[in-house]
Simulated scan of single mutants.
Amino acid sequence: MLRRLQVMELVQNWAVWRDAGDWERFRTVWAPEGRMMATWCQAPAEGFIKASQEGWAKGVSILHFLGGCSVDIEGRRAIAQTKMTISQRAPVQGVVVDVVCTGRFYDFVEEREDGWKIVLRQPIYEKDRMDPVNPAERLELDPELLGRFPEGYRHLAYLQTGIGYEVKTDMPGLKGEKVTALYAAGAAWLRGGTLDWEE
């Protein structure tokens, strides 16, 4: 139970420190080879930190809220699945909106000499929605652009594309081949296998 709590604390620290812009402490949650797979950035941990800092400086607003967490541990390895929402605010066609995306963080975690560290974070995107911050404003989306993105994060991707990010279009969702492959990679990781999760 103590080791599970340590992994859960790691997951919580990721969200708090990242959203607060506490970049030095945020670095400590990652293994040296750690990697982040987000819709807008797929990069080694240091590259993700740099991209987050650049976005922060430009006023990009992405926040995370965490829910329940399930941790499976085998030896010095763990898989943590954490219910979460990603909330992003930005203008879309001149209307300031909030997008809320519901899903899970799926984390490949390993115990190192200085504690548990994230080796890979792959979010699972389950559903999302977009709402004008001012409910009196009317928002009209381009259906062709919206239809380019998977159901689980299409509004998030629409917003991120509009502010200049190149969004990955084949992230795991609630169902399908990508999430099935992710679960298989997690099971192999717990058995001691190498991490060969494909981007």
Rank of each mutant, 00 (worst) to 15 (best):
D128K: 02
K117F: 03
K168Q: 15
G176Q: 09
G103S: 06
G162D: 01
E110S: 14
A185T: 11
P91Y: 00
A187C: 10
T180L: 11
F108V: 05
L120D: 03
L139P: 03
F108K: 03
D107C: 13
L145F: 02
P172K: 08
D114W: 04
A90I: 02
R148G: 04
M84N: 06
P172L: 08
Y165Q: 02
V109C: 14
G147N: 13
L190V: 04
D170H: 14
F149N: 09
I124W: 03
E111K: 13
V97Q: 00
G94I: 06
I86N: 14
G94M: 01
R121G: 15
G186T: 02
M84W: 05
V95R: 00
V96F: 03
L159Q: 07
K168I: 15
A90K: 01
A184M: 12
Q81Y: 04
A157Y: 02
K178P: 06
F108E: 03
Q88I: 14
V133Q: 00
Q93E: 12
Y125Q: 01
G115Y: 06
D114G: 13
L145P: 05
E111W: 07
V100L: 10
R154P: 05
F149H: 09
V95P: 02
Q122K: 15
A184P: 07
Q88H: 10
D128C: 04
F149S: 07
E113P: 04
G94P: 00
Q160P: 00
M84D: 01
A90S: 10
A185W: 06
P123N: 10
T180I: 11
V179I: 14
D114I: 12
W189F: 04
P135A: 04
I118D: 10
V119Q: 07
R121K: 15
M130A: 11
I118L: 15
M84K: 09
P91Q: 05
K117E: 03
L190P: 01
R112Y: 02
P150H: 08
A185R: 02
E140K: 14
M171G: 03
P150F: 08
V100A: 08
I86P: 05
Q122P: 12
G186A: 01
